[in-house]
């Protein structure tokens, strides 16, 4: 098949815009990014099937029909994206409800380890041998002759 350049450009822009939003910290923006990329993927799948008349038998000759299989795939993808969009929106709302914003926070525990790394320390919950160890080589204890 020969690629359709309009599709190629649309895919590129939808992915590009979507990805740049995806990398944001605001969940709403991330969500919009997801929606845009989702559309981009759909066009990408569409491009994998032939262009033509609607694939409905009896309304047009079979030879010139568009490929129905990518369409079914896209339909599945569209509907799944709908469900996920709803879920992400609920997540954004809940985040706002709890925190007053819908920014994605960094992980606290990871941040703690990053700080340990910056201070050149070792994990705090670990055992060191510093306390109450028998020191195997005793240098204390005077030699007998000294007594």
């Amino acid at each position: 098949m020969s690629p359709n350049l309009v599709y190629v450009v649309v895919i590129g822009v939808l992915f590009g815009a979507g990805v740049s939003l995806l990398l944001e910290r605001t969940l709403t923006r991330v969500l919009i990014g997801v929606v845009l990329i989702g559309n981009g993927v759909n066009v990408l799948i569409l491009m994998g099937g032939a262009y033509g008349t609607p694939p409905i038998i009896g309304e047009a000759p079979v030879e010139g029909m568009s490929d129905p299989l990518p369409q079914a795939m896209i339909l599945t993808a569209i509907v799944i994206t709908l469900g996920i969009t709803a879920f992400l929106l609920a997540l954004a709302y809940r985040s706002w409800q709890l925190l007053g914003h819908d920014e994605v926070q960094d992980d606290a525990e990871d941040t703690r380890i990053i700080e340990l790394a910056e201070r050149d320390e070792i994990p705090h919950a670990k055992e060191s041998e510093t306390e109450d160890l028998p020191s195997p080589v005793y240098d204390a204890g005077p030699g007998w002759a000294e007594r």
Partner: peptide
């Protein structure tokens, strides 16, 4: 775009 491609359901 779907319409023009020949995908009315979509």
């Amino acid at each position: 775009l779907f319409i023009f491609h020949g995908a009315p359901d979509l």
